[in-house]
Amino acid sequence: MTTPSTPAPDEIRGISIRQPYAACILAGAKTIENRPARWRTGWVLLHTSKTIDRPALRDPLVARTLRDHDLVTGAVVGVARIVDCHQDPEDTPPCTPWAHRDAWHLVLDDVQKLQLPVPARGQIVPWRPTNDLLDQVLQQLPHLRP
């Protein structure tokens, strides 16, 4: 983990991630998020969508990571910093076991779990959190407050 920089509120975006993948990110096992398009680097609120990918619970990578982890849905559960966004070159192995071949890989760092999830609505595309939502999240992470 690198030393986090203080984000400006208008630079923070939200990213919605289905469970159990969000829990795997918070646990520190999943260091990338797969997306169909490139994302910019910077801070993101980690939001869990309202649905759980039940078949993914049988994936060995997920199963060994999720011991004693709650699968909170419909809430901001943490923050992270996207430090890189790339695709793996053809004819090379994936950058991590979590990487999908044809996806953009958002490389996550400085992942921090909230002690209290903050209920919120999200979107699959980068979304801008309301000031109220951002205040509720940053109250739990005072070292990130601008």
Rank of each mutant, 00 (worst) to 15 (best):
D84N: 11
R67E: 11
H47I: 05
C95L: 13
Q139D: 05
L144R: 02
P89F: 12
I25T: 07
D10S: 12
V83Q: 00
A120Y: 03
P126E: 11
E33I: 08
T3H: 02
V76G: 00
V107H: 04
L138Q: 10
G28A: 08
L144F: 12
T2L: 13
R40C: 10
W43S: 00
Q136R: 07
P119I: 08
R121G: 01
I52T: 11
P117Q: 05
H86P: 03
D68P: 01
P146D: 13
I12Q: 04
Q112P: 02
P146V: 12
S16K: 01
G42Y: 09
L45S: 06
I82Q: 00
P93K: 08
Q87I: 08
N131Q: 14
V118H: 03
D88R: 01
I15Q: 02
R40V: 08
T73M: 01
V111G: 02
G28P: 02
P60G: 13
L66Y: 11
V125Y: 04
I12D: 03
P60E: 14
E90L: 15
T41G: 12
G42A: 09
K50H: 09
G74W: 06
H69S: 13
P20M: 12
H69A: 14
T2C: 08
A120C: 07
S5F: 14
L61V: 15
A103V: 07
A75H: 01
A29Q: 12
V79F: 07
L26C: 06
P7H: 05
L133H: 04
Q112K: 03
P93N: 13
G74P: 02
A37D: 08
S49G: 12
N131I: 09
V72A: 10
A22P: 02
T6V: 15
H86V: 15
L106Q: 06
T92W: 10
R67Q: 13
